[in-house]
């Protein structure tokens, strides 16, 4: 049995490295992107083998699924745009991408060289404090209680990214709406009809699972976000109203919920984000619900705003 598992792991790692290699050195950008999605799915299986189910779910949803869709969309616009696709600007892009990748590579390799023994102490401390955390799943306890501040800032980053995407979109919007297939293929329409209830139910299920097993706001948010993107694809003439109050509230709901909880806990406990032990579960649930809504909407903003600016702008 042990040998079989070893062989399986070996094949998995080989496939992962092969996919990474092919992604980097494929001749066409489209081929690279498809291989990148395959790489993400293999990565998700690797995370599962390592026991990090939460990371595997996030990788499959966001890393492979959503990033892949955005990249394919970006490539199409890039190739159709004569300004971006000219020889000179391509050279500039390649140089800039090369410099940035080199920077990232040096940061990563430095941290790899300085890698220390995993801090076993942290794990035992998390496990020791599980009964006061308000959740029976260690990852949820860390994300939404022990290190809630980090998650708050992550939601802040998502909010800032949305602001940037919307600003660029508004700058170049020519009122023509997204470049989608018109009329929407019948197959996509019927798929949407079948998938929508499933996506919302499974999203809610993952959110609920987060309290005691792998799952939670990010995974739930990306599934419900996918439902929203399907709606966008099948209704190309319906646009997100970026100026409406409802949209603004929903987009910042996750961040605002953390802000409100931070103030509340400061009043109650005297410390930012230190939940009262008996109410910790309720606080986690409220934060998760708010975060799910904001994450789902953020992903839709990314999709909706990825369109008009490549049409040459003003």
């Amino acid at each position: 049995m042990e040998t079989t598992v070893r062989i399986y792991d070996f094949l998995l790692v080989t496939a992962l490295l092969g996919a990474a290699w092919k992604t980097l050195f494929a001749r066409e950008a489209f081929t690279s992107t498809v291989l990148f999605v395959a790489f993400g799915l293999l990565m998700a299986i690797v995370w599962t083998r390592l026991g990090a189910i939460d990371v595997a779910l996030a990788e499959a949803c966001i890393g492979a699924g959503l990033t892949g869709a955005l990249l394919i969309d970006a490539i199409r616009h890039f190739q159709e745009d004569s300004n971006l696709n000219s020889k000179e600007s391509r050279l500039t892009f390649h140089m800039a991408a090369g410099v940035l990748s080199l920077g990232l590579f040096s940061i990563l390799s430095t941290s790899l060289l300085n890698l220390q023994e995993p801090n076993k102490d942290v794990y035992t401390r998390v496990i020791d404090h599980m009964d006061v955390s308000g959740s029976s799943h260690p990852v949820t306890s860390v994300l939404l209680n022990f290190r809630a501040f980090d998650t708050w800032l992550e939601l802040g980053v998502l909010l800032l990214a949305s602001f940037a995407a919307i600003s660029i979109h508004q700058l170049y919007d020519d009122g023509r709406g997204p470049d989608l297939m018109r009329p929407t293929p019948t197959a996509i329409k019927s798929l949407t009809r079948v998938m929508l209830p499933f996506l919302v139910i499974i999203g809610g299920f993952l959110l609920w699972l987060g309290s005691h097993s792998p799952g939670g706001a990010f995974q739930a948010g990306s599934l419900i976000g996918a439902a929203g993107i399907l709606i966008q694809i099948t209704n190309p003439d319906r646009r997100i109203l970026f100026s409406s109050l409802g949209f603004r509230i929903l987009l910042s709901l996750g961040f605002l919920a953390f802000l409100a909880v931070a103030f509340l806990t400061n009043l109650l406990q005297g410390n930012f984000l230190e939940f009262p032990q008996s109410q910790a579960g309720t606080f986690i649930l409220i934060l998760e619900l708010a975060a799910t809504a904001s994450i789902a909407l953020t992903l839709n903003v990314m999709f909706a705003c990825s369109h008009p600016w490549t049409r040459g702008g003003r």
Partner: peptide, 12 residues
Amino acid sequence: LALSASAVTCFI
């Protein structure tokens, strides 16, 4: 779900 997704993708 995998069946319907694969059928639709193939069709498109």
